[in-house]
């Protein structure tokens, strides 16, 4: 059996997690579930494995199944590994009217993957999502915490190069610039 790394938040994240749990009345710490899952996903390679969810359950002092049923309900939580850059392209009506379908096609061709797949080098995953509240600046995509709006195919290509050069995993918790 492969050696399993112990799942544990860094000291800093643990401090954040505990302070998040104190935002709710005594005994209602389960309310911190979504903030903690975001924290966990950001810390543990962009997805929630069963051991990670079990760890969150132990912090919240609840049953693991209570975490699984929540993580599987919300679209932002990935229950399978994803590439370093998860490109989430909005394809709901206002974005569609402004070229979201063409943007997805362009990305599929450029990255040589289909929606739902990850590039062989593990750099990019492509996903279509429903309305992100960016209808006036369509088409757009989200990667990590940031919105990239009014995208043309040229701008998209530049963005892909930037992501590749950086080579990092942007997360929802990245601080503002």
């Amino acid at each position: 059996m492969a050696e399993q790394k112990e799942i544990k938040f860094s000291e800093e994240s643990l401090k954040v997690a505990l302070s998040l749990m104190r935002r709710y009345p005594v005994g209602k710490q389960k309310s911190a579930m979504l903030p903690l899952l975001h924290l966990a996903q950001a810390e543990f390679d962009g997805w929630l494995s069963v051991p990670v969810m079990n760890y969150v359950a132990s912090l919240l002092e609840i049953k693991p199944v209570e975490v699984y049923e929540v993580a599987s309900f919300y679209s932002m939580f990935n229950l399978k590994p994803v590439g370093k850059c998860l490109l989430e392209v909005c394809h709901t009506s206002p974005c569609w009217l402004n070229g979201a379908d063409e943007l997805v096609q362009h990305l599929q061709k450029k990255l040589n993957i289909k929606v739902g797949e990850t590039t062989a080098d593990g750099m990019f995953s492509l996903k279509t999502v429903e309305c992100l509240g960016s209808c006036g600046t369509a088409p757009m995509l989200q990667c990590g915490s940031k919105y990239y709006e009014k995208l043309t195919h040229d701008k998209m290509d530049e963005l892909l190069d930037q992501f590749k050069q950086k080579g990092e995993r942007p997360t929802y918790l990245d601080p503002l610039q």
Binding site: K30, L34, E66, F73, Y74, S75, M76, E130
Partner: peptide
């Protein structure tokens, strides 16, 4: 005053779905 993030679910805009979600459950 505290801010809490959702997890990506339109239904949590419905006020009782939102309350369930605020309690750390499915919306």
């Amino acid at each position: 005053l505290y801010v809490q993030p959702g997890g990506g679910a339109y239904i949590c805009g419905e006020e009782t779905g939102l309350i369930e979600s605020l309690e750390g459950k499915r919306g």
